[in-house]
Structures are given as C-alpha cells and as structure tokens.
Amino acid sequence: MYKFLEYGVYGASILLILIGLYAVLTKKSLIKIVIGLSIIDGGIHLLLITIGYLRQGTAPIFSPGFENAAAKMVDPVPQALVLTAIVIGFGVTAVALSLVIRLYRHHRTLQIDEIKSLKW
C-alpha cells in the first residue's frame, strides 16, 4: 500500500519538474516560460517535503503534555527550507513578469524569436 503511495508522490513531483522543464525548453511565449518556471518550483517543493515525511508522524509542533513526542515528528528542516523557497520563488516570478511587461512595452510582442535586438 505504501509502495503505491511512494511511487505516486515521487512520480508526481518528478513529473511536475519535467513538465515545467518541457515548457521552458520548447515554448516561445515569454509568459509560458515563466509559468513553466513556477511549475518546476511546485514540483521541487513537493519533493523536498516528501523526503522529510515520517510514517505516522505528526507536524513538528509541540503541545502541552506532549513535550517528549519528538521521535514521532516529521523532519522540520526541509519545511523551513521550503517556507523560504516559496517566498523567494514569488519574488523571482514577480521580477520575471515585470521584465516581461517591460519587453512587451518595447517590442510589442511576447515571442522570443521575434525579439532580436539586444538594445532596449
């Protein structure tokens, strides 16, 4: 039972990464490329959280009376890492989209093969 779950979760997160990479590598629209980047982000976050999961584990938050429950808790280190990564990923997406808006304002197109000049 857990074997299916394991293959499912790892497979889904790796599939997300691959789908995002496909979009980045083959699509010509700038917004599509940024969408692909955010899909890659999601896949990596799921992969990291899955690595830290513990079977029958609880969230790493202590309650009164259960101060010794540390052995049954999932790994908090990947969670803190992913927490940081989501916020930074939003900043990266915002800056990328502002560059897209700026490129559109200058070139009046979103197709990367039409944007030939390096000059703004």
Partner: peptide
C-alpha cells in the same frame, strides 16, 4: 532525466 531522478528518489522510500 526523469528515469534517473525517479530511480534515485524511489530508492529513498517514503516515511523512514
């Protein structure tokens, strides 16, 4: 790429 990634991560197991 996906094949090798999947091989690497499914060897880790879930929840140990």
């Amino acid at each position: 790429l996906g094949f090798y990634l999947f091989e690497a991560f499914s060897g880790l197991g879930l929840g140990f």
